Simulated assay, not measured.
Amino acid sequence: MEEIKAKIIKIATNIINKEIDLLNGCRTLVHFQRELAEPPEAFFVLRGIDSETDIFPIVLAERKQWASEALSRLDREKNEYISLVKEEIIEACREIIQQIPHL
């Protein structure tokens, strides 16, 4: 459990420090939160964002399956959406970092 908590803290910190793609970071955190018995409520925000953005391909293997015009359109839509929720993501990550060690 401590290993999962450490990974969650590292990813959340990387998101805050803009060291990883916000959407990829959200998806990764949502994946890891499933390992927690009682995840912090801030994960609800990330799960919602993950759900609303599941159409956007971010992994190279997914991206290769799209036509370039469609991929460009999806990238624009993704960037527009992320710009709207960026602060929510960062705030959720801050809350997660504060709460995870106490679980």
Rank of each mutant, 00 (worst) to 15 (best):
R94S: 04
K18D: 13
R47T: 08
C93Q: 06
S68M: 10
E19R: 15
K86N: 12
F32A: 06
I89F: 10
M1H: 09
A92S: 12
I15A: 00
F32V: 04
D50P: 00
E2N: 14
C26V: 15
I9G: 01
G25W: 05
G48M: 12
E69R: 02
L103S: 08
I97T: 02
L74W: 11
A61N: 08
R76Y: 13
C26R: 04
A6T: 14
S51D: 07
K5S: 02
L103Y: 10
T28K: 15
W66D: 00
E62H: 11
I49A: 07
H31E: 13
E3C: 01
V59L: 12
F44C: 01
F43E: 07
H102E: 10
F44M: 09
L103C: 09
E3W: 04
G25C: 06
G48Y: 11
L36P: 03
D75H: 11
I97E: 02
L36Q: 06
A61Y: 05
I97P: 02
R76N: 15
N24P: 00
A12D: 06
S51L: 02
I55V: 14
E69I: 07
L74A: 13
F32I: 08
G48R: 15
I58Y: 06
K86L: 08
A6C: 00
L71D: 06
I97Y: 08
V30G: 02
D75P: 00
L103K: 03
R47S: 13
I20G: 05
L29N: 10
K10P: 02
P39R: 14
C26P: 06
E38G: 00
E41N: 06
E91F: 11
E88D: 13
E95R: 14
K78N: 12
R76A: 09
S72F: 05
R34E: 13
L60D: 12
P101V: 05
